[in-house]
Design a protein around this nucleic acid. Structure first.
Lengths: 348, 348
DNA sequence: AAAAACTAAGTTCTCGTGCACATTTCTATT
DNA sequence: AATAGAAATGTGCACGAGAACTTAGTTTTT
């Protein structure tokens, strides 16, 4: 019950050797006779010796240095929350001696990515968390990392065939499927539905596509042949109202709308204004969205906490570097289903 | 950007005093002249000195000792997961010098609670996490704690008018409301519903009641006058099938069933066997429940991770004791809505 | 005026780890 | 047997905080 935490000193005393010898055994630094090695090893194993992480951290000062390479939210607001999440993670990990430096690149300029990547490679970091949304440059960067054995974790955008330690991201397809499943719960019969993409960021172009694909896939897998899905895509916030209403008018059978982005409140607004009754599912806990969820104009919000994503990314590297833990290749974020009654959990 | 973390030594050098003096200023231990005090204080404030938590922990060895007083899961399986959660928390906090000891009592015997409570009081702990499900004994225990200024956090069962530092628990009423809200999404019209309580543990008797109350409240608040709710309560697993089928037969209009416990798979089983089609909402990610969720016999599962609950409980005490943080009086657990498409997030 | 009491400050030790350096022990060669 | 050289093992210090202990200087007491 009352487990004592054995120290190197304890082990040394029990094995009748000095601390230095125990230390050498623990770290396999050699220069220990075979018999001594085995004697110490046995005691170590029997007592299940765990080094005192606190002392270790104190001694080492900075345990490891991580670099984070993400798009600057100045150019793409999408990245604001992941970056805030990183800031939180930085504080959390500072106490155990992990230092994290941020490198933010302009996602419109390959040169900006290259420049930051170069700095990272030159600065001798121990691990990197990177959003590889510039494909060619990222692959090039990964080659460099592989060359010098620098571990990296990919973030948000998944790239095949890399030696990444892991990937942290949203499961967009599954997210679309979740939306579709919720939709059929609202509208069990064969129905006419609409998928609306309200472009909000560069990053999201690809995301929206995958969500739509997941949404459709759900119905294909179910063989719900009777379902008709209309897709509306726009990046012009001014035009959207007109186009949207037109699609609705042309297809009066549409009973459910799935908005693939956090801009779902725009659709809710239109529905409210024109007193159109339709089921509505969208993303994220923006204040406007919450208002419409509470008023009943939005039926479900799906939430994938980007803050958690950042934290997972850092912890993934730390686990590998510090605790030598085997980490899951792909860590995906929870897809949270939010309604009026359980929203409180997700606010703060 | 590149904030250096100043140490006592740095401060001492800048103020031209010794480390001891700085230490005295920091901890207000007196024996420092006014002029020196102010000189040091000024530098401290200007540099926003934060003591190195790692060194502090190392020095102090054990930072604090916490006791956890819960029912033994040998007598009530309900407590298995919270206790597992505690075990996880114990490991997590060990690294920062927090020691947690478990005291498990027999929830059927007041004497068992008393005996454990006495041990805790005598052993000089710094804080206590307690499940006060034996009312009279708990109140008595809290009086003792108050007397010696021992902080405690209540867990799972809420007791009014205590000086508890906080309470960690499920929001049962809200949980019932969530179920009701999901039900209306499945069954929008005025309907006939059933609430089934399948008693599974002592603890749950009260829980079930609150969930039912929340479920009904949802409809009252909405003024859905047309809804009829039948309640079935049983602790006899053998009889349940018969009674349940009888209620269904007598009230053929019932279109939705809300099971207030994790035993929802029993109902699903009956529905499946008799090919009864009805919407079904229940609790927890038991293997059987997951199977029925995947097969479509269960429509929604609600999940309130008891492991998280334990962790929150410990962190609540640690925040208070170590970081002197103001903690929220009531911390409630997320109410997670689980369907086939997002279940993966919650498994492991 | 010397001893005692007190104040303000400095010094040293501890916590457990990890590494550099010092010392001992063993082996091989002359 | 003496000794170099390697191999094995021991020791000391630093990391930063914190508290006990020590010292220097001042005031009070007898």
């Amino acid at each position: 019950m009352n487990e004592k935490n054995y120290t190197i000193k304890d082990i040394a005393r029990m094995a009748n050797v000095s601390r230095g010898t125990v230390d050498r055994v623990i770290h396999g630094r050699g220069k220990v006779s075979k018999s001594t090695y085995e004697k110490v090893r046995l005691i170590l194993d029997k007592l299940n010796y765990q080094p005192n992480l606190v002392a270790q951290t104190l001694r080492k000062g900075e345990v490891c240095r991580l670099a984070v390479l993400l798009p600057d939210f100045k150019f793409d607001i999408f990245w604001k929350r992941p970056i805030n999440g990183i800031d939180t993670a930085i504080k959390d990990y500072a106490s155990i001696g992990v230092r994290v430096d941020k490198f933010l690149f302009n996602p419109l300029r390959a040169s900006s990515f290259r420049k930051n990547a170069k700095s990272i490679l030159e600065d001798g970091y121990d691990g990197i968390l990177v959003a590889p949304n510039l494909y060619r440059e990222s692959v090039e960067f990964f080659r460099e990392c592989d060359k010098i054995g620098l571990p990296y974790v990919t973030f948000n955008t998944y790239i095949e065939n890399t030696n990444a330690l892991g990937h942290i991201g949203q499961d967009l397809e599954q997210s679309g499927k979740t939306a579709a499943s919720l939709m059929t719960k609202l509208l069990p019969g064969p129905e006419e539905l609409m998928v609306v993409h309200v472009e909000e960021s560069l990053e999201n172009a690809r995301h929206m596509q995958e969500k739509e694909s997941g949404f459709k896939q759900f119905y294909e897998e179910r063989n719900s042949g009777g379902v008709r899905i209309h897709v509306l895509k726009t990046d012009n916030l001014k035009k959207i109202k007109k186009t949207f209403l037109q699609v609705l008018k042309t297809n009066p059978g549409i009973g459910g709308i799935y908005v693939s982005t956090s801009k779902v409140y725009i659709i809710a607004q239109i529905l409210e204004k024109h007193s159109i009754s339709s089921f509505l599912i969208g993303y994220d806990l923006l204040d406007e969205n919450i208002r419409y969820l509470k008023s009943g104009h939005i039926d479900f919000l799906i939430y994938q906490n980007p803050g958690i994503q950042s934290n997972l990314g850092i912890s993934c590297l730390v686990d590998h570097l510090l605790f030598k833990a085997d980490i899951a290749k792909k860590k995906l974020l929870p897809i949270e289903i939010v309604i009026r009654e359980n929203i409180e959990n997700y606010l703060q």
